[in-house]
Design a binder for these strands. Structure first.
Lengths: 122, 122
DNA sequence: TGACATCTACTACATATGTAGTAGAGTTAT
DNA sequence: ATAACTCTACTACATATGTAGTAGATGTCA
């Protein structure tokens, strides 16, 4: 069981860098997330905390300390989306879909496109 | 601007009772959320905090203190879904839709049903 | 090798949240 | 009226998070 993982936006953004790269140094994270304007020490703190919670592991490779995710992005997504659906849509994903349509986040064509993709992949 | 509202699961559950009823007393909330097993004082604390943040208002009506939401459920949903899509799906709602399909949360028939509904409503 | 640059670990502090006890005001039943 | 009950306000405390400074370890360049 992967259990329920829930990350803050900040934590997710940082994990995203690790996922995208397989693993990364604090420096790399800092560079890729430069837009956010977080102090490098802030990134370091968040990384340590995630390590303490076994969400990632770190090891020194040569002179670099590499941070490596211990959980899969897909698992976290599943867990977080599922959590949102439970909390906001009474556990009914179709209501989320309906919401997306109603808010114009997606439209009928998107539905159709994805339906077509499914047919093809099958 | 409604700004960005983000509620914890617990806060959302409590607001949900207010939204469903227009407004409600702490007692009512407590009863409707009995399953959660929260102490009534816990509900009270959460209600006060939400009031302090102008997410709800309270007024004494007769001998009852009624709590009334100051923000709409739709706005909170929009805001929270949008936040999730930004954080997890690079802001692309279609990716969320794809995720739901991939995880089997919804299937092709759901897509079709909703598409039909849209046609009808139009 | 000594001054400087890097990087991580540790410390610090404010806010948010989960959780609930206690006190005090008001209500009610006998 | 007085004891019992109800309800909210206040207090309390632990954990999580956002944010970042400082110190100490290590690496690098002149």
């Amino acid at each position: 069981m992967t259990g329920t993982v829930k990350l803050s936006d900040q934590q997710y953004a940082i994990m995203q860098v690790l996922w995208d790269n397989g693993s990364a140094s604090a420096k790399q994270v800092q560079i890729e997330l430069a837009d956010e304007g977080w102090a490098h020490t802030t990134i370091g703190t968040v990384l340590s905390r995630l390590e303490k919670k076994d969400i990632l592991a770190s090891e020194t490779v040569g002179r670099e300390r590499k941070y490596r995710p211990l959980i899969q992005e897909g698992d976290v997504k599943r867990s977080m989306v599922s959590n949102l659906v439970s909390a906001l849509f009474k556990g009914d994903s179709k209501q989320l879909l309906a919401h997306l349509l109603k808010e114009g986040e997606i439209d009928k064509n998107d539905l159709k496109d994805i339906g077509d993709l499914l047919d093809k992949d099958k």
